[in-house]
Design a protein around this nucleic acid. Structure first.
Length: 501
RNA sequence: GUCCCUGUCGUCUAGUGGUCUAGGACUCUGCCCUUUCACGGCAGCAACACGGGUUCGAACCCCGUCGGGGAUACCA
C-alpha cells in the first residue's frame, strides 16, 4: 500500500442512540473516500466501559446502512486491520502505553479524584489554567514502578511540553497555533486498564493507515495532544479536517442535543423521513451545487462537492427544511405503486401491524374502529388537548415536572421494553405517592392523544424511545414548558428521589 | 475563568477587491391556479455583527470590540 492512499474513517462510540452527527460525519468521510478512490472505515470506539452497549453499536450500524452510508472495513465486514472494535484491541494499547512509559514520554499518576477536584477548583478560582498540576510527573521511575507493583491504583498520563507553541494545520482553517502551557497532561490509560479516546484513536488511526482525519470540530483543542503522541511514537500524523458542528435551532444555536431536538437517526426513520432525503439534507449543509439545485443524490454529491469549500459557521439542523426536501422526494421520486411499497416497508407491513393487532383487538367493536384507535402508532406528534393532560390534585407545572422526570428516567433504560417502562412509572408513582392509575393518565394523553387507548406500556415499547421522547417533550411544552431555573430544581428533586435507590 | 474555533436575511447558503442598490432555497405574507387542501406559478418581507484601518474602490484584506460555539473528565 502506498502512503498516498486515501483512507478515512468514522469512529462512533456506542453509548446511545445513533446520532445524526455520526451520519453527517460518515457522509463527508465516505464522499471524500469515494472521490479519491480511497477506503472508508467504520471503527467502534467503545473504550467507555460503563456507557458502551452492543445494542447501541447494533443500532449505529443499522442506521448508517439504512442511510446507504456503507463502509469498506468495519467490525461486521472485517478487513486487513481487524479487529475494528477498540474493546478487542486492548493488548495493542497496553503495549503502546508501555512503550511511552519506557521512553519517558508518559508517567503513572496516583492522584485521587478528590485531590484533582480540589486542585481544579483552586486553579479556577485563581483564574488559571485548570489542567493537572503534574505532581506525579516528578515521581522517580523506580518508585513509580514499585508502587504500581504493590497494587496501588494509577492512571497513565502523557507528558506535554511545559512551554513553546504547538502549530497544527486544519484543512478548512489553515494554521492553528496553541500554547503548550494551555494543554493538559492527558490521561491516556484509565485505572481500569482501558485506554482513553486520545491514545486509542491515535494508535488505531496509525495502525489502520488513516490518511485524513475528518471529524467534528469539538476535537480541535485536542489536536496538540494527538500530534505529540504521533511524535512520541515516531509516526507521520494524518491530515486533519474538522467539520463544523450541527446545532440546535434555539436562540443561541447550541450543539445539537436530544434535549432540544430529535438527534437519533432512528427518530427520523420512525417519523417517516426517507434516507435519501436525510442524506441530501446533510450534504446541503455546507455545500450547494453551482446550478443552485438543492435536491441531489449521494452520487451527485460525491461527484461535485469539495471539502475545502465547506462553510465554517455553526450549522442549524433545520427540520422544517428537511421536511420540505423529504416532501419533494415523496412527490417526485415515487409513483403510487412504489410509494405503497415504501409505506409497507416503513410501518404498514406485517411486522409492525402484527404487534399492534393484539393490543387493538379487545377494543374493537367494529373493524372500522381500527383507524382512530391505532392512528397514533403511525404518527410523529399526536394532537393533544391541554385540558386532557391533567393529574388529580396537580397543577399543570407539576404535571410537566413529572413528565420531565419520566423522560430522564426512561432515558437511562438500557432496554426500552414494556416491562422496564412499567418499572419506571411504577417507581415514579411510589416515590411521588401517586396511584399508578392516576399517574398514567397524562402519559396516555401525551403518547396516544387520548384518554382511552391501547395499553400504555406496550404501546410505548412499540413506538420506541424516540417517538415517546418527542411526544412527552411536546406535552411538557403544551403545559407551559420548564424554565431553566425550574429544570435545575427538578434535577435536584430527581437526584434525591432516584440516586439513593 | 482559561484556551481554541467561528460570524452574509429567522434558517441553509451564493459571493475569494469593482459584475452586489448582495443572488438562490426553507419559513412567513399576498395574489393566481383550483370543488377543499396540498402541489405548481407570480410577487413581497427580510442579511454583509460593530468600530477602525489598507485601497481610487471592501461582504471579501488587516486590527480591535462584541456575539455565538467548542474544549477545559479515569466521556467520546
Amino acid at each position: 500500500m502506498t502512503s498516498s492512499a486515501v483512507r478515512v474513517r468514522v469512529a462512533p462510540s456506542p453509548t446511545g442512540d445513533p446520532h445524526v452527527g455520526t451520519a453527517y460525519q460518515a457522509l463527508f468521510n465516505l464522499a471524500f473516500a469515494r472521490q479519491r478512490e480511497g477506503k472508508f472505515i467504520l471503527r467502534i470506539e467503545d473504550t467507555d466501559r460503563a456507557r458502551s452497549t452492543s445494542e447501541s453499536e447494533h443500532m449505529i450500524l443499522d442506521s448508517l446502512n439504512w442511510l446507504g452510508l456503507g463502509w469498506d472495513e468495519g467490525p461486521d465486514v472485517g478487513g486487513p486491520h481487524a479487529p475494528y472494535r477498540q474493546s478487542e484491541r486492548l493488548p495493542i494499547y497496553r503495549e503502546h502505553v508501555d512503550r511511552l512509559l519506557a521512553d519517558g514520554h508518559a508517567y503513572r499518576c496516583f492522584c485521587t479524584k478528590e485531590r484533582l477536584d480540589a486542585m481544579r477548583a483552586d486553579h479556577r478560582e485563581k483564574k488559571e489554567f485548570t489542567g493537572y498540576d503534574r505532581k506525579c510527573r516528578e515521581i522517580p521511575v523506580d518508585e513509580s514502578a514499585s508502587r504500581a507493583e504493590a497494587g496501588e491504583i494509577f492512571v497513565v498520563r502523557m507528558k506535554i511540553p511545559l512551554e513553546g507553541d504547538c502549530v497544527m494545520r486544519d484543512v478548512l482553517r489553515g494554521e492553528i497555533r496553541k500554547d503548550w502551557a494551555s494543554v493538559d497532561d492527558q490521561v491516556i490509560l484509565k485505572s481500569d486498564g482501558f485506554p482513553t479516546y486520545h491514545l486509542a484513536n491515535v494508535v488505531d488511526d496509525h495502525l489502520m493507515e488513516i490518511s485524513h482525519v475528518i471529524r467534528g470540530e469539538e476535537w480541535i483543542s485536542s489536536v496538540p495532544k494527538h500530534l505529540k503522541l504521533y511524535e512520541y511514537f515516531g509516526w507521520e500524523p494524518p491530515v486533519f479536517c474538522h467539520l463544523p458542528l450541527l446545532r440546535n435551532n434555539d436562540a443561541n444555536k447550541s450543539k445539537l442535543s436530544k434535549r432540544k431536538n430529535p438527534t437519533s437517526i432512528e427518530y427520523y426513520r420512525r417519523a417517516g423521513f426517507l434516507p435519501e432525503a436525510l442524506v441530501n439534507f446533510m450534504g446541503m449543509i455546507g455545500w450547494t451545487r453551482a446550478e443552485g439545485e438543492e435536491k441531489f443524490t449521494l452520487e451527485q454529491f460525491i461527484e461535485h462537492f469539495d471539502i475545502e469549500s465547506l462553510s465554517l459557521g455553526g450549522t442549524v439542523f433545520d427540520v422544517e427544511k428537511l421536511r420540505w426536501l423529504n416532501a419533494r422526494y415523496i412527490r417526485e421520486d415515487y409513483d403510487a405503486a412504489s410509494l405503497l411499497k415504501l409505506l409497507q416497508g416503513w410501518a404498514l407491513g406485517p411486522e409492525y401491524l402484527e404487534k399492534i393487532v393484539p393490543l387493538a383487538q379487545p377494543r374493537l367493536e367494529t373493524l372500522s374502529d381500527w383507524g382512530f384507535l391505532t392512528a397514533f402508532f403511525f404518527a410523529d406528534c399526536v394532537p393533544v388537548r391541554e385540558e386532557d393532560l391533567t393529574l388529580k390534585g396537580k397543577e399543570p407545572s407539576d404535571v410537566a415536572g413529572i413528565l420531565q422526570m419520566s423522560v430522564w428516567r426512561l432515558e437511562e433504560l438500557a432496554s426500552f421494553d414494556a416491562e422496564s417502562i412499567q418499572g419506571v412509572l411504577r417507581s415514579l408513582s411510589e416515590k411521588l405517592d401517586i396511584k399508578l392509575r392516576d399517574l398514567t393518565r397524562p402519559f396516555y394523553v401525551a403518547i396516544t392523544g387520548s384518554k382511552a387507548s391501547t395499553p400504555l406500556f406496550d404501546s410505548m415499547e412499540l413506538l420506541g424511545r424516540d417517538l415517546v421522547r418527542t411526544r412527552l417533550r411536546h406535552a411538557i411544552e403544551l403545559l407551559g414548558g420548564l424554565s431553566t431555573k425550574k429544570t435545575k430544581a427538578l434535577e435536584k428533586d430527581y437526584r434525591a428521589l432516584f440516586t439513593a435507590s
